[in-house]
Design a protein around this nucleic acid. Structure first.
Lengths: 242, 242
DNA sequence: TTGTCGTCGACTGCCTACAGCATACATTCC
DNA sequence: GGAATGTATGCTGTAGGCAGTCGACGACAA
């Protein structure tokens, strides 16, 4: 009976076709089935997903709004081709946004919010010592989300989540968590928020996210598996015929 | 011959119908022809603009990505209804982003960029003493854009422009420029950027945008013309018949 | 061999049409 | 008289289809 009721009273949206198409395409991009720079032919996607072109088109329009695909009028949609430079800039912006979130969260910390943070932190640490990487990653993003929400600035929260989603794309080849040290930083952050020390909280968060940025860059330097920009192929190589 | 060549080598895009529809709808929203909370019926828009529903739908999808309209699956598109709280948050985020832009611009200031800034600043000041409000406003946004571009962080620039566009929406009822004082702040900002004084530049920009935020809030307090959320009407009141 | 032009194929952009759904009104029952 | 249900209507979501357009390939000429 409670199956469909999200804990946060999320609206049970009448999931339209274009929404599910959007999510499936997004998943294909994230797992790498659709490669950066690849031309997304509407008919192919429609056939593969078993729908008509229309919902595919609309899903692509929405995805372009989130920076996942680039629309070239008259040419169609291409999977956004990430560069190291862009990843760096994205992580820099994330640092900026999240540090401000931490500052605002510390400006008026509420009891329940802080205790939520502690719960998540505890879970993350447990997952960490249990070597459950997936759970640790989940707890990590959950904690960051919780902090942004505590900021009370919804615009900031939306923007951050938007940026964070794109960052996740770049995280794929990176080691996913930095172990116990990361959670100690988290704990310190929560302390600062609870104590209302704005500058300290912002600084911890800034250094924390800056750290992941650095490790991303290093990892990227070691594995420069950057794909060439975009081999634009509109026709597939003709099969031997005649 | 140079008619179509923008100064910044902008691509001459093969303007599609949905693009022009998007711009026309956006204009209608900005000038207030389409009011906050209003239900955007696709057929009506299509008829009024002389196109079919398809490009209208796609334009609405794109507009939703920029926060101008809200899509409710199964219900259609509604003009985003701005609240004072959201405006405040938006302006706060803009302050954050632009201050960082100024910091980055000051980190490595290039000669040509700085001279461009000075040109714009001069024009703005001239427009100001000539009491040409429109020109002053234009110069103002041009200058801010130039600073963001000098930051060298394209993600930051994109995000800022996105936020700034939405902020413009809230500026409508506000006094549009603060006169000479504003341009003196601009001049000081440019000096700081040229001298490479990151902290100073960031601080000037922060206070500068914070000032406009304060004046917005005050103006809003005096003219609390906030519309009621959204009187959702899907059928127009039936005409007296029979 | 290299540059230019014509042809062809494929894909996008747009239009029209239909089905499903949500809302508002009218009617009936308690 | 009030509430619940049936019915009508307008709108959205989706499908299918057609024309325009862009790029690639091949032929021809220099």
């Amino acid at each position: 009976m409670l199956a469909n009721q999200g804990s946060t009273a999320k609206i049970v949206r009448p999931t339209t076709l274009r929404e599910s198409v959007l999510e499936r395409i997004l998943e294909l991009i994230i797992i790498g089935s659709l490669k950066p720079g690849q031309h997304l032919v509407e008919n192919e996607l429609a056939d593969n997903l078993g729908v008509s072109r229309q919902p595919v088109r609309e899903a692509l329009q929405l995805l372009s709004g989130e920076g996942w695909v680039d629309l070239r009028p008259g040419h169609g949609a291409y999977v956004h081709s990430p560069t190291v430079e862009e990843a760096d800039q994205l992580l820099a912006v994330r640092t900026l946004l999240e540090a401000e979130s931490a500052r605002l969260a510390a400006r008026n910390p509420d009891k329940s919010g802080v205790s939520t943070l502690r719960d998540i932190c505890l879970r993350g640490l447990e997952a960490c010592v249990a070597d459950d990487v997936d759970a640790a990653v989940a707890a990590n993003s959950e904690l960051h989300t919780a902090v942004v929400n505590m900021s009370g600035n919804r615009v900031l929260a939306d923007l951050t989540s938007q940026v964070a989603r794109r960052v996740r794309w770049y995280h794929t080849p990176v080691a996913r968590h930095r172990g116990k040290a990361s959670w100690e930083e988290h704990a310190a952050l929560i302390d600062a928020i609870e104590a209302g020390e704005e500058d300290v909280a912002a600084d911890i968060m800034r250094r924390h996210t800056e750290h992941t940025r650095q490790s991303y860059l290093e990892s990227r330097a070691q594995h420069p598996e950057v794909e060439p920009p975009a081999p634009i192929r509109r026709r597939r190589p003709r099969a031997v015929s005649s």
